[in-house]
């Protein structure tokens, strides 16, 4: 079973890298880019066969390692 974990900075947490990308896009002539937020995508291949159990394990992995919940939020989906 394949899982995709998406980790993004929480709303309100300043993302200086996203800001730098936004400026660079502006310099390339892409107007109207109001906001850029940068995050991580982590794909996992699990031996689980039960989707619910796999999702629960994925969320536990996020809580324990994959995300820093002080500043990040995460989503787990089955691919």
């Amino acid at each position: 079973m394949r899982l995709r974990v998406t980790v993004m900075l929480r709303q309100g947490v300043l993302d200086p890298q996203g800001e730098a990308v936004r400026h660079a896009l502006g310099a390339l002539g892409f107007t109207g880019v109001r906001s850029v937020r940068q995050g991580k995508v982590i794909d996992l291949e699990l031996s689980d066969t039960d989707p619910e159990a796999a999702l629960a394990r994925g969320r536990e992995m996020c809580e324990k390692l994959l995300a820093n919940t002080v500043i990040e939020r995460y989503e787990v989906e089955i691919l």
Binding site: V13, L14, P16, Q17, A20, V70, I71
Partner: peptide
């Protein structure tokens, strides 16, 4: 230490990158 939860908060990329 912050990642281990021994102290509160987080350290992020420098504002000036």
């Amino acid at each position: 230490m912050l990642e281990a939860g021994m102290l509160p908060g987080a350290l992020m990329r420098n504002a000036g990158l």
